[in-house]
Design a protein around this nucleic acid. Structure first.
Lengths: 226, 226
DNA sequence: TTAATGCTTCGTCTATGGTCAAACTATGAA
DNA sequence: TTCATAGTTTGACCATAGACGAAGCATTAA
């Protein structure tokens, strides 16, 4: 038996349905209160409190006190990517949650995946960037080409600043609704932010759905998926 | 509650210590038998069997039957990367396993697998026989060529007698230490027997380790892996 | 102060699921 | 054939941990 990191601890943490629901809800990047998370998981506040305590202890979540509320959010991007990886694999294996709820086609079209664009539009964006030569895919590695960098700068994204950070510039992320890949990483986040700034899209309150205006969607496809 | 992939299922699967140990052991890419995995996890074969069944059902592992053994390996690279992500995060969070155990490098070099030679030397032998045209591989079928038969006769092996038996003359066998194939079947057994007879190697008492003399190893490689 | 809300802690209950021994099946060797 | 080894299945046992209600803090508003 070798020594090494204990993945069982992490797995068990994610392996409880209530906690998994909480984590999934937090993948939008938005911070939620303890009560909201309890409702999201379908448990009483008392039980939720126990779960949140464990998630905090493992540093999967961070907490911010604000008045009588406690807001919880994913601890960092790494936790987000781990959850994304898990969802991708679960989707491929056909492991779907059975609990029914409002079926949401909007969620399938465009939503935040942690903090970048996912859904059909996210996939279109990604594939458009590939075919137009802005991105290159080699063996699961995704890189921004010179032409792509120029195009991004022109679109109002400071690629140099993004590259200087610790975070990977480009990363592919498996989309669970369409089972195809979309763009994650610092660039993915920056692009989504720019879409907000330009008024092309905005996030629906308390949901992971992103609503694009008619013209916004059109411009997005023209610009990147032509 | 939204619909989506069920990451709790995956998490719970990885969250059990015994299963986590098995998965971690398989991260080298090597295939291991059910018994070996049981030992790795520190549980009885019965319990291991239950766990392996679950991991197979979730398509986290794939299985290859080989004689009395069942070799298990990670299903694909995606499972591997998920585990790596988990280990990375666990390491960063300071979640470390403490259990330690011995690992035998001699076992890795040369050992008996049933009655034939396995380990690095076994793999070298097999690959040498292929490249020198003594063996031919077609779609998991392994056959001795005419040139190979002559060479074996010259080496002191009565191929005709082996062929008359019920047992298959040549068979490939997956090597767990290098995850490559080596030679099994009647010919594999006969070759190992000849190595013993010639004094090139002998079997260590009460162990699966085979010790080759310096000259024996050299002659083996000269003869078959030149 | 009092009341209301948000959340946590405590005590208890319960069920899920991991564990093993023993019996059984399957494959190979003698 | 008979024996040995590898692995699975079954059934019983039991520990873990997730669930809730009630009570206890903490913060805000009046």
């Amino acid at each position: 038996m070798k020594e090494g990191p204990d993945i069982a601890l992490l797995g068990a943490l994610i392996g409880d349905p209530a906690r998994a629901n909480m984590l999934t809800s937090l993948m939008s990047g938005k911070a939620l209160t303890a009560s909201e998370l309890a409702a999201e998981a379908g448990i009483t506040p008392a039980t939720a409190s126990v779960h949140l305590k464990k998630l905090l202890a493992a540093a999967l979540l961070r907490q911010r006190k604000q008045g009588r509320h406690r807001y919880f959010a994913l601890a960092d991007d790494e936790v987000g990517s781990l959850l994304e990886t898990l969802m991708g694999l679960a989707a491929k294996r056909g492991m779907l949650r059975t609990r029914t709820g409002p079926k949401d086609p909007a969620l399938r079209k465009a939503r935040v995946c942690y903090n970048h664009l996912a859904g059909d539009l996210g996939v279109s964006l990604y594939e458009g960037l590939i075919t137009t030569g802005h991105l290159r895919e080699d063996d699961d590695e995704v890189t921004l080409t010179v032409a792509g960098q120029a195009s991004m700068e022109q679109f109002g994204i400071d690629v140099g600043a993004l590259q200087s950070g610790r975070r990977a510039l480009c990363k592919s992320c498996l989309d669970w609704s369409s089972r195809r890949t979309h763009l994650a990483g610092a660039l993915g986040t920056a692009l989504l932010g720019r879409f907000y700034d330009l008024g092309w899209a905005k996030r629906q309150e308390g949901s992971r759905v992103i609503t694009f205006s008619g013209s916004g969607e059109k411009k997005l496809l023209e610009q990147f998926a032509a």
